[in-house]
Amino acid sequence: MQRRVLVGFLLGLCGVVVFGATLPMTRLSLDDLGPWFISFGRATIGGVLAVGVLAAIGRPRPLRGRILVDLLLATATLVFIFPLLMAVAIQTVPAAHGGVVLGLLPLTTALAAMLFAGERPGLPLVAASAVGAGLVAAFALRNGAADGLGAGDGLLVLSVIACSSGYAITGRLARSMGGWEVICYMLILALPVNLVGTLLSFPARPEAVALTSWAALAYLGVFSQFVGFFFWNTGLAMGGIAKVGQVQLLQTFVTVGLAWPVNGEVPDAETLAFAAAVVAVVAFAQRTGRPRPPAP
């Protein structure tokens, strides 16, 4: 594995560890907070941090043309659509279960890399993604609602499509601007809407909200919505969106592991077996050749 790809993989892994706690923390915050407030609130926290970072560094960048369009698309998918769909879905499915469904991300990210970033991942990489997606689908069918896939699973799949599209766009942006800049400008563009949404959905009795719920929301705003993207966007740009995207399969294992201490969801043998299987798929995907360069 080339050094640049290896560094991209390690940065992506750091991002995955941060993102792996997102579902457990979202479920924890839902004990006292509504999904709308969580979605707007986490993005508002991230937006305030982004303003502080850019103000401290003092490197304003003119936003116009293709960069502005890409930033708006990434903002719509990653700041609004994905968090909201996930917060609504996780009300009806366990965090560990949701974590395995989100294992679809590597396949959809590889496809999005072809559609939005001009990458041409090799057949072994696409095949590994498909195998991982098949394992995820099997898990969801075996553990969904009594009649098969439930509404929560459907919302999670839609959130996956939105998320992977956003990942591909931010990875493309990070080739020409810093990964930290990408997430900062996204959150700043979304800040006016998120501020209004936060105020409108603010809890009627904030003093009744448990400290653990506020702490979970703080994690989502500082790490899931902000710091994690510093690692993730840079990793995608350095190692290739499709290839580094395979690291997301490890997020399943992180989420399942954290759902135990955070949400009290003790994983059963079947969940652990599926998680181990998708981890094996990641190992195989990283042994494949580097994806061909983006089309000019």
Results as ranks from 00 to 15, higher is better:
100 V>E: 02
85 L>S: 02
73 L>Y: 12
122 G>R: 15
86 M>Y: 01
123 L>R: 15
102 L>K: 07
57 I>S: 02
71 L>K: 02
99 G>E: 04
121 P>Q: 13
88 V>Q: 10
128 A>T: 11
115 L>E: 04
72 L>A: 15
116 F>D: 02
92 T>F: 14
80 F>T: 04
90 I>P: 07
98 G>K: 13
60 P>V: 00
120 R>L: 13
98 G>V: 08
66 R>T: 09
89 A>R: 09
121 P>D: 08
112 A>S: 15
96 A>Y: 12
93 V>S: 04
126 V>K: 13
111 L>F: 13
53 V>L: 14
63 L>D: 01
74 A>V: 02
94 P>M: 12
71 L>Y: 04
80 F>I: 14
78 L>K: 03
78 L>F: 14
114 M>I: 15
64 R>V: 00
73 L>Q: 10
85 L>H: 08
58 G>F: 00
111 L>S: 09
92 T>G: 15
75 T>F: 10
121 P>G: 12
107 L>I: 03
66 R>E: 08
126 V>C: 11
125 L>H: 11
89 A>P: 01
63 L>I: 10
117 A>S: 13
114 M>H: 06
62 P>K: 04
108 T>I: 05
59 R>W: 00
67 I>F: 14
89 A>M: 08
99 G>Q: 06
120 R>S: 14
86 M>R: 07
111 L>C: 12
57 I>T: 14
81 I>P: 05
91 Q>C: 02
93 V>D: 07
103 G>L: 09
101 V>R: 04
87 A>N: 15
90 I>G: 05
65 G>I: 09
66 R>D: 14
66 R>W: 11
106 P>Q: 02
57 I>K: 12
125 L>P: 09
116 F>E: 03
80 F>K: 02
101 V>Y: 12
107 L>W: 06
97 H>S: 05
56 A>K: 09
127 A>N: 03
116 F>Y: 15
94 P>H: 13
117 A>E: 10
67 I>L: 13
90 I>A: 09
82 F>K: 04
88 V>M: 15
106 P>K: 01
97 H>R: 06
80 F>H: 10
53 V>T: 09
109 T>R: 01
95 A>G: 09
95 A>T: 09
56 A>R: 05
77 T>W: 13
